[in-house]
Computed example of a mutant assay.
Amino acid sequence: MNNEMSEAGPLDPGRVNLLDPLDVQYWCRELHCSELELEMAVSAAGDHIAAVRETLLTGRTA
Protein backbone atom coordinates (compact mmCIF):
# COMPACT_ATOMS: atom_id res chain seq x y z
CA MET A 1 0.00 0.00 0.00
CA ASN A 2 1.36 3.41 -0.84
CA ASN A 3 1.72 6.22 1.67
CA GLU A 4 -1.09 8.27 0.09
CA MET A 5 -3.62 5.54 0.83
CA SER A 6 -2.52 5.23 4.46
CA GLU A 7 -2.90 9.01 4.93
CA ALA A 8 -6.36 9.17 3.35
CA GLY A 9 -9.27 10.12 5.55
CA PRO A 10 -12.48 8.19 6.05
CA LEU A 11 -15.27 8.23 3.47
CA ASP A 12 -17.63 9.63 6.12
CA PRO A 13 -15.61 11.93 8.40
CA GLY A 14 -18.46 12.11 10.91
CA ARG A 15 -18.67 8.38 11.63
CA VAL A 16 -16.40 5.48 12.55
CA ASN A 17 -16.81 2.46 10.27
CA LEU A 18 -15.37 -0.51 12.15
CA LEU A 19 -15.87 -2.72 9.09
CA ASP A 20 -13.33 -0.72 7.06
CA PRO A 21 -9.72 -1.45 8.11
CA LEU A 22 -8.46 1.85 6.65
CA ASP A 23 -11.14 3.75 8.57
CA VAL A 24 -10.14 1.99 11.80
CA GLN A 25 -6.47 2.73 11.14
CA TYR A 26 -7.26 6.40 10.45
CA TRP A 27 -9.38 6.89 13.59
CA CYS A 28 -6.90 5.06 15.83
CA ARG A 29 -4.18 7.39 14.58
CA GLU A 30 -6.35 10.51 14.93
CA LEU A 31 -7.73 9.61 18.35
CA HIS A 32 -4.48 8.12 19.69
CA CYS A 33 -6.12 4.88 20.72
CA SER A 34 -5.84 1.16 20.04
CA GLU A 35 -8.28 -0.78 17.87
CA LEU A 36 -9.75 -2.36 20.99
CA GLU A 37 -10.25 1.04 22.64
CA LEU A 38 -11.92 2.32 19.47
CA GLU A 39 -14.21 -0.72 19.28
CA MET A 40 -15.17 -0.33 22.94
CA ALA A 41 -15.89 3.39 22.49
CA VAL A 42 -18.07 2.73 19.44
CA SER A 43 -19.88 -0.03 21.34
CA ALA A 44 -20.54 2.34 24.25
CA ALA A 45 -21.36 5.53 22.34
CA GLY A 46 -22.33 4.61 18.79
CA ASP A 47 -20.40 5.43 15.64
CA HIS A 48 -20.71 9.25 15.59
CA ILE A 49 -17.18 10.62 15.93
CA ALA A 50 -18.06 13.32 18.47
CA ALA A 51 -19.56 10.72 20.81
CA VAL A 52 -16.64 8.34 20.27
CA ARG A 53 -14.11 11.10 20.96
CA GLU A 54 -15.96 12.15 24.13
CA THR A 55 -16.15 8.55 25.32
CA LEU A 56 -12.43 8.04 24.79
CA LEU A 57 -11.60 11.30 26.57
CA THR A 58 -13.74 10.51 29.59
CA GLY A 59 -12.98 6.80 29.70
CA ARG A 60 -16.64 5.77 29.70
CA THR A 61 -16.19 2.57 27.66
CA ALA A 62 -17.30 0.11 30.34
Rank of each mutant, 00 (worst) to 15 (best):
N2H: 09
N3L: 14
E4D: 02
S6L: 14
E7P: 02
E7T: 13
A8V: 06
G9S: 06
P10C: 13
L11I: 10
L11T: 08
D12N: 15
G14P: 03
R15K: 14
R15G: 01
V16R: 00
N17E: 10
N17G: 04
L18H: 04
L18M: 10
P21M: 03
V24C: 13
V24A: 12
V24I: 10
Y26K: 04
Y26V: 06
R29G: 05
R29V: 01
E30C: 00
E30V: 00
L31T: 00
H32L: 11
H32T: 07
H32V: 08
C33K: 01
C33A: 11
C33N: 01
S34A: 08
E35A: 09
E35P: 09
L36I: 14
E37T: 05
L38H: 05
L38N: 04
E39Q: 15
E39T: 09
E39S: 13
M40E: 10
M40Q: 14
V42R: 03
V42W: 07
S43L: 14
A44N: 11
A44Y: 09
A44E: 01
A44S: 15
A45F: 13
G46L: 04
D47E: 15
D47F: 15
D47Y: 12
I49W: 02
I49L: 04
I49G: 04
V52Q: 01
R53E: 09
R53M: 03
E54R: 08
L56M: 06
L57D: 11
T58C: 06
G59I: 10
G59L: 08
G59E: 09
R60D: 15
T61Q: 11
T61C: 15
T61A: 06
A62S: 14
A62D: 13
A62Q: 10
